[in-house]
Amino acid sequence: MSAEALARPENRPALKAIPVAGPREQAGDRLFRWSLLLFALSVVVLAGLVAWKLIAGSLMTWKAFGWRFLFSSAWDPVNDKFGALPFIYGTLVSSALALLLALPLGAGSAIFLAELAPRRVSDVCTFLIELLAAVPSVILGLIGIFALAPFLSAVEPWLTKRLGFLPLFQGAPYGVGMLAAGIILALMILPYITIVSREVLLGVPRPLKEGVLALGATRWEMVTRVSLPYSAPGIAGAVFLSLGRALGETMAVTMVIGNTPKISASLFQPGYTMAAVIANELAEAVSDLHLQSLIAIGLTLFGVTILVNAAARLMLLRLSKRHS
């Protein structure tokens, strides 16, 4: 058809052919939106189902022990006595240890990558650190068993000799134990802290930074007086996100923490975490109450990670409000 022919009125669709439709959204669009919504809502259903299954699966334990379940350190499957305290303790201590190690290292790396390194170097380093985040945790556990634990059992006697007056560094040097778990967990969360903090630091408005530099501040002073205070909520968000990961991490910890339900002050001693006890005992649970108690631990873990992740979102939200 030539341009002239197209232009002739008889070759245009007649206006009378337009059907009448009142509403703004047609049937096809509504059908499309509703079917997409179905998929989106499946996420809501799934989240509800997870919560429901965990609650329904642990009722027996809550009925038998009530709140004391969380504060008792009896874990005796043979006599059907259960208390989650050693696992809660181990989870909290190993995660705290991991944060203690990873936060300075991660924040330092982020400052270097955001404020000092040339953009190209920074991008390459960030790419590599993202790869570290992709390493499956079972592989880190493997390294924990066969590289870190032997190394620690060689180093621990030396530490005990010099710092043994502290309860933290007493006891037999097993290698596997709380310290090993903390170090492996630190390795796992280091990429998260670094990447999120770098992102947050890169978001500090340039005029703020240039303003303080123009007043004669050194680069480090700019970082401590402007960049860090401004991005503090974001870095706190990164810490909470990483904490959520650390609390729930299973494999790497199970493989190096020693799996002993005891509460001990020394970092060299073996411990146990909530995730690890589920991984180890669920398939071989000896009684219904045992199974339900493991699910109760899972429910506790679920609740704690929701709170921690909510705190992380809240922090990041506060930062984005600061931007606008």
């Binding site: 669709p13 206006l15 337009i18 059907p19 009448v20 439709a21 009142g22 703004r24 047609q26």
Partner: peptide
């Protein structure tokens, strides 16, 4: 306003 907006936009 009484027409199907999608078809209207073709015209």
């Amino acid at each position: 306003l009484s027409l199907d907006p999608v078809v209207l936009r073709r015209h």
